[in-house]
Design a protein around this nucleic acid. Sequence first.
DNA 1: ATACTTATTGAAAATTGTTTTCAATAAGAA
DNA 2: TTCTTATTGAAAACAATTTTCAATAAGTAT
Lengths: 140, 140
Amino acid sequence: MSAEIWLEQLHENGYRLTDARRAVVETVEKSTHALTPVQVYDLARKKYRALGLVTVYRTLEKLEELHIIQRVHQPQGCQAFISAGAGHQHLLLCQSCGQVEFFDGDDLDGLTKTISKKTGYKINEHWLQLFGLCAACRTN
Amino acid sequence: MSAEIWLEQLHENGYRLTDARRAVVETVEKSTHALTPVQVYDLARKKYRALGLVTVYRTLEKLEELHIIQRVHQPQGCQAFISAGAGHQHLLLCQSCGQVEFFDGDDLDGLTKTISKKTGYKINEHWLQLFGLCAACRTN
DNA sequence: ATACTTATTGAAAATTGTTTTCAATAAGAA
DNA sequence: TTCTTATTGAAAACAATTTTCAATAAGTAT
Ligand SMILES: [Mn+2]
Ligand SMILES: [Mn+2]
Ligand SMILES: [Zn+2]
Ligand SMILES: [Zn+2]
């Protein structure tokens, strides 16, 4: 479904559509968890057995370049990727099951203005990420 | 100066005080930039020539365990460390020269409450980091 | 349909960053 | 000063990622 859009974007940018790429894209696109290259490899190989790990790395690289996916930074490591979401969004991660939610609506204008004044910095960007327990993990 | 405090903390936690550790601690403590292990190695070896890179890794590991330093996550990589700061603080990084500032006073209670209600998550923690240009880099 | 160009592929090798092993050394308690 | 044992750096081992390369196949031209 939306994997089609990702593939289309790859194609538009001059990349060829191959079974290997399709498998990687479909895997990452439908995942609600951030996936490491090996995790993508293991999952995608169910769709396309001949897939090589190198191709996973190469495809993730391209998807990241095109801002289709993003790297997810966590205390345990920063090698996992997930969809980039649409527009200005941030991540909320479940510390127990790894589920990822997107959210927006953060308003840091007041803060950045204050900090800017205090430090003399011109602030261009911010990283915000929330960690917690999802509804499911919370109960059990 | 405050390097003494770091060393004291190491000592209090049962670690011995050696020239190698002193060199690493003094280097990291006085730095206004996040430093990678090799960068620490290169700088610290000016104080203590015999220092080994392995010891840098081991010392950084201990300092991180004791929450004296923290890992700094950036688009270019996540291997650099800097002082952990005191209390609830966040980082503001200069995208040009790498200078790091600490700030506090962020109020995300409203946001987390909203997101919590919307998603069902129990939110425990947040990561916030600002990126921009420091006063110096801004002008030239 | 067919031929053609060249991006893409996976396997293997190479590289990089980090960790482990180990015997020698030295911190700090006795 | 002696003694125990944490710490050290060099070398080896390891893991993750990248590069090389010849074979293949995507997509365009014919
Ligand atoms: Mn990171
Ligand atoms: Mn905060
Ligand atoms: Zn969960
Ligand atoms: Zn600067």
